[in-house]
Amino acid sequence: MLVLTRKVGERILIGDDIVLTILDSRGDGIRVGIDAPRGIKVQREEVVRAVTEANAEAASAPDDAEARLRDLLGGAQPPADPAPEQ
């Protein structure tokens, strides 16, 4: 890991087309501006982790989740597929 010290207004270049600019320094945090091509994903790690955990939790729903939901909704059945037109 490369560790750098930067001041407000200074930049960090990553490759030929990514630029990090230090925008502001506030107490225990900083604001960083990121210029990157549209094809490059720029995501906060904690958001990616939260989404991954939520997806894992949803995927591990009990096998009877559909039946339990149907019971909660008063026994409603899913709509039937319409007959194909001829």
Score class of each variant (00 low, 15 high):
36 A>W: 09
85 E>K: 14
68 R>P: 03
64 D>V: 00
17 D>S: 14
29 G>A: 15
62 P>I: 09
44 R>V: 10
13 L>R: 08
57 E>R: 14
79 P>A: 03
29 G>Q: 12
39 G>Q: 07
11 R>Q: 05
50 A>E: 14
50 A>D: 05
24 D>A: 07
35 D>T: 05
79 P>I: 08
35 D>S: 14
73 L>C: 00
48 V>W: 10
35 D>W: 07
73 L>R: 04
53 E>M: 12
80 A>E: 15
86 Q>T: 15
67 A>Y: 07
85 E>S: 11
30 I>Q: 11
12 I>Q: 06
14 I>N: 01
8 V>W: 01
79 P>N: 01
16 D>Y: 06
80 A>T: 13
64 D>Q: 07
68 R>I: 07
46 E>K: 13
2 L>E: 13
50 A>R: 13
83 A>N: 11
61 A>V: 03
11 R>V: 03
11 R>L: 05
72 L>P: 05
44 R>F: 06
60 S>M: 08
35 D>V: 07
79 P>D: 01
41 K>L: 11
43 Q>F: 12
86 Q>G: 11
21 T>K: 09
18 I>K: 08
46 E>Q: 06
54 A>F: 12
69 L>I: 02
79 P>V: 10
12 I>K: 04
76 A>N: 08
59 A>Q: 08
19 V>W: 05
40 I>W: 02
5 T>D: 09
52 T>N: 06
39 G>N: 12
67 A>G: 01
29 G>R: 12
9 G>R: 04
86 Q>V: 09
84 P>N: 03
19 V>I: 13
10 E>A: 00
12 I>R: 04
